[in-house]
Every structure is written in structure tokens, then in C-alpha cells.
Design a protein around this nucleic acid. Structure first.
Lengths: 244, 244
DNA sequence: GCTGATTATCGTCAGGCAGACGACTAAGAT
DNA sequence: ATCTTAGTCGTCTGCCTGACGATAATCAGC
């Protein structure tokens, strides 16, 4: 690629790993794939792969996302860089620096992993990050590599980001109700929120929600107005996470 | 290092770049070094260098910081990972992925760069990021590589982080007055704050400041109480940046 | 159709915090 | 002595929040 002495610097492999989060059945879930080869063969891991020679980091993340889930980053989902992990021993094979990315997606149909659906699945983050020393059921072994740490950082990023940005709408379909948005906050934060105060807050924050005019009863009960995400990205004032 | 096929992935060079910020003379300043070799020879750039084979990313950042400024990360300064930049064309020589780190430091004596003081200096970020098309004075040419972007991201991170964390104290010496802390906020945010409301706010936030008992008149006027940073890292309630 | 369960939505009220700003204090400078 | 500069303490008002009562509109079952 250039006149540069390759012995002047140590060579690294660079990968992207993906923390793909969604809300299903009132729980925050992450996408995991089963490793087909050593190390950590048979264990669950975050999806990811090598960055190619000619692509940017975010391009690599979007490509891996599409390959492993069929998700396009445009379709409502949100993709951002999370952090980079480069401990010299994080991969026993060689020196790998992994640029983790965070994806927030609406509840999706079943994931697919290169056509093999059994090797990819959604798992509640509470289960994935349970750090008890107890025996795990076979399906609940700790994640491979340092992926538990990466997932934990991603979850924490998501929790804090929906406070001051409108990103919680990325977990919702294109049209959603105030109640559905509230359940997103409740699942991500793991708390119960007062429906009346929540409704007042989100409908009073300019640019957060725009009514579509339609209504739905898909949640049961009285018909609820449908909204789309508004143009605002930063919420002012922010949503307040109940005291820790 | 391992039985792994090196042709299975493209090789990358991995570097750390440092956004070192401080407040001097009521202005937010960044540390820059003059490049001694092509590309961008003679231009100012952010300090940084290759990650070694056996060190973690944060270790590499701390080492570069010590090498280029003599600063130890422990001595009051704050070091955190900022973001990673990996555009395939960001370095014309080869494929380089740079893990940028953010350092917040108190106002220091003159920087040193490997003993050559003339090749390192503090510059106001307003000057470094001025994006006018006008001729720059020789000293104000744009930063090398994508370092203007990195610096901009670092400044934005610092601006938002002092809102909800106690990190503004990292810009202050070990003992400081409320007025000095207020001038940090004013310099980083580029706004004027009401001294009375600021005083009430910071002295009322538990864990933010602990009085040392001493006073000083180094800022002129009535003697002011001296404080140290308290144990709190997250401010609750946060400092509020005046409306944009 | 009536009843109860469920969800959505509107209103009220009290406490707390933030912005605006007056007043006073204690040092150095002229 | 007076001015200037900073620091510190109060007051007041408006807004936001949390707690919670009340009403509305649908569905499931009798």
C-alpha cells in the first residue's frame, strides 16, 4: 500500500464487534451467535468480524450487521461506535483490537446467521451478564472473550443515552404509542414508570414525538394515539432515570 | 505469537492519539506537537504513537502522555478513551487505526516534547478549530491528518462530561476556589455563569467539593475558601449548560 | 347489554431547583 | 479614605417533577 517499513510497528488484526440490543417481551435483549470454532467453540459471543482492507470502521460494522441479522442500518435502527478493546491477551490466538459498535433496533423477526438460525438468537442481557458462580445451564455459559465486558459497556451506554436523547424510539417500530415507548424505558432501565407523568413528559417535550393521527388498540385497553419519532435528537429537558 | 494464518486478515497499524486539554488564561487549550517528518511535515498535530506489542491501549496512551508531556496520569489528570478513527485514507502511508484518548489536565508549566520544547505547545482550541477559509498565519495551519475532527470530538466530550460528572476539577490544581472552578466551566463552555448561583450549586451538591479550611487571595478580591475534589464522580443534579 | 379488567389521558397539588438579582464582606490598589 | 475586585449569603418567582385522583374507551366474559 505504501513505502513504509512494516517492521517499524507491530501488526494488529482489527475487528468490529456488535452489541445489538432490542426490547422483546418487556426485557432488554442482545443478539448473540454461537461460535463454530475454537477458541470458545460452542460458546455464545457477540457478532463481529474482521475489518476489510478498504472499508471504514462504521462500514464494517454495518456490513457485519447486515450479514448476521439482515438488518439495514437505515431501517430505523441506530448504529454508533461504542469503544475499542485491545488488551494484549483478549484473544489467545493473536493480537486483536476490536472496535465495538452499539446497535439499537426494534423488535425483529427471528435473527438469521448466515442462513443458520440455530446459531444466532436473542438473549436477555440479565441472563447474559449474570455473574453468579453457580452452574450455568448449558445455554447460559459466560460469553466468549471479553464480550461480557463489551456487552455490559453497551448496555450502560444505552441506559444513559436514552436519558438525554430520543434514541429510545430506535427500539420502537416506525409508529408507536406512548405506552410502548414507556415500556422501552422500563425494560432498558429495569424500573417502573408512572404512566401519567411519563405521558405528560414525552408529549410535552418539543420535537420528541409527532402524532400520526392514527390510533391502535394492539396493547389492549383504550385506543392509544400513534406517534412517529420527531426531529429532535437531544431531549431538553432530559428524561430522568429514577434515583439509583 | 500463535498458530494463526496471517493472510486471513488484513494487517493494520494501531496508534493512540491524545487530546490533552487544559485551561490557561481563561481559554480551553489543547496540546499540539510539530511534525518532524512527512507527511504533513512542519504541521501541528496531536501527540501520539504506535501501540506496542505487549501493552494495552490505555497503557499506550499513558506512556505517550508521559513521553510527550512528562505528565503522569495519576497526578490529578484524567485519562479516558475517546473514540477510534479508521478511515482507510486517513494516513497516506498505510492503513492506520487510531484509538484517540482524552486527557484533562490542570494548567501545567511549559510542555516538553522529548526535550525539544519548541516542538510542543498549548494552543487555544478556538484557534486550532477555526474553519475559516482565510489565510492562516503560519502557526495556525489546520492540524495534520484527521486530527481536527478528533480534537473537535474530544472538546465536545469534555463539554458534555463536565455537565454530569465532577471532571471539571481535573482542570484545577489540587486545591482550588469556587471562582477558579467557575472559570473552568466558563472557559470550556464559552459562556458566562452567574457567580452567586454557581456558588450555591456547587457547594450544595454533596460529594463535589470538600473544604480544606484554607483560603487564598491569589485571584484578588476577598479571600476565597479552598476546596479539594470530593469523592463523587457523578453529579446529581447535574450542572446545567446554559441554553444553546 | 352489563360488568370488570385493562390501558390511555387529563388534572391537581406540593416540594424542589434554577435563573435573576440585591446586599454585604474582605482583601489589594491608588 | 476610596475604589475595585472577588466572594458569599439571601430572596423571590417560575417551572418541572413526583404522587396520585379521576375519567375515557376498548375488550373479554357473563
Amino acid at each position: 500500500m505504501s513505502p513504509y517499513d512494516p517492521s517499524a510497528f507491530p501488526p494488529f488484526a482489527v475487528t468490529v464487534d456488535l452489541v445489538v440490543l432490542t426490547v422483546r417481551h418487556h426485557a432488554l435483549c442482545a443478539l448473540t451467535v454461537r461460535r463454530g470454532e475454537p477458541p470458545y467453540q460452542g460458546r455464545w459471543a457477540l457478532p463481529g468480524g474482521f475489518v476489510r482492507d478498504d472499508e471504514d470502521l462504521s462500514q464494517a460494522a454495518a456490513r457485519e450487521l447486515a450479514e448476521e441479522t439482515g438488518l439495514r442500518a437505515q431501517s430505523g435502527a441506530h448504529l454508533e461506535q461504542l469503544a475499542t478493546y485491545g488488551d494484549p491477551n483478549r484473544d489467545p490466538r493473536m493480537r486483536v483490537v476490536s472496535v465495538a459498535h452499539l446497535v439499537l433496533a426494534p423488535d425483529l423477526p427471528a435473527p438469521r446467521a448466515g442462513g443458520d438460525a440455530r446459531s444466532a438468537r436473542w438473549a436477555p442481557v440479565g441472563t447474559l451478564l449474570a455473574e453468579n458462580g453457580q452452574e450455568h445451564p448449558a445455554d447460559a455459559a459466560p460469553l466468549a472473550f471479553d464480550h461480557a465486558r463489551i456487552l455490559s459497556d453497551g448496555v450502560e451506554r444505552a441506559r444513559s443515552k436514552i436519558e438525554y436523547s430520543s434514541l429510545a424510539t430506535a427500539f420502537c417500530p416506525a409508529e408507536f404509542t406512548v405506552g410502548e415507548l414507556r415500556r422501552v424505558y422500563e425494560a432498558v432501565w429495569g424500573v417502573a414508570l408512572d404512566p401519567r407523568n411519563f405521558h405528560r413528559k414525552v408529549t410535552g417535550t418539543v420535537g420528541f414525538l409527532v402524532p400520526t393521527g392514527g390510533t391502535t388498540t394492539r396493547q389492549g385497553g383504550r385506543p392509544a394515539q400513534l406517534f412517529r419519532a420527531g426531529g429532535a435528537t437531544l431531549l431538553n429537558p432530559p428524561m430522568l432515570r429514577p434515583e439509583v
